[in-house]
Amino acid sequence: MSHPAIGQEDFHKFREFFYRKTGILFEDSKRYFVDKRLIERMEATGSDSFRSYFTMLRFQASSEELQALTNAMTVNETYFFRESYQFDCLVNSLLDEVVATKPPKKPVRIWSLPCSTGEEPYSIVIYLLEHWAKLDRFDVEIFASDIDTQVLQAAAKGVFSPRSVQHLPAALLRKYFTRLANGNYKIDEQVSDSIDFSRVNLLDPLDTRHFRDIDVVFCRNLLIYFDDTSRRAAAEIFYNAMSPGGFICLGHSESMSRISDLFRVRKFKDAIVYQKPL
């Protein structure tokens, strides 16, 4: 027997459900991509028809399968300068707004979560050093957190594969990295020493209570994997940790419209981001 078939109406039914849940809308042209991943997940879960799979997906109390499927539908790979339009937005727009209302001597605080193996917070540091002219006038504190202690150890070590640094301009690679004998790249200690790495479970108030007056949060490709209640709780925790007027950047396929109404949508030249009202 060949694998279970997915009909046109099944695709439409799934597409509407997935759009409502995640904000990701698959056009008809993505049909092959979607079917392929649905069939993979149907096989992995032993579902003999789209109907039985969809029922499980929709009614499973733990939302586990929805998370697994979302994972399959989204490419989640971390590398330097990933979704760099948001870093452009940071240095071109967000930070200037932040410092315009900041009392003198108060540091600018940026929080990257989940930071995974460090590519995101290190990209932020490089962007600040390279592209934010006001850096010498303000103190900037960068926090990077993840729930997984193994990735945190790797992040602090700062050694990266050629694949991970492939989107960096060659000049920046030379400037901030040392090429190791095994072909990997080690980031300059001045960069790695400027970041505080910490283990944080976003939904544990004891872990997040230290984070106050954060001006910019990068929380990309995390909340999309949470269930409805957890992502809403997470947004509330970020809101609380942020300073008034602070910004939060989500992943390119994530939208606050599925999560929380606490934030204001702001459009800048480089990106749409969410702002805690002033």
Partner: peptide, 14 residues
């Protein structure tokens, strides 16, 4: 299409 006002604002900005 948008599923609620927030997504509506996002699209209207775009």
């Amino acid at each position: 299409e948008a599923v609620n006002g927030i997504e509506g604002v996002e699209k209207a900005l775009s």
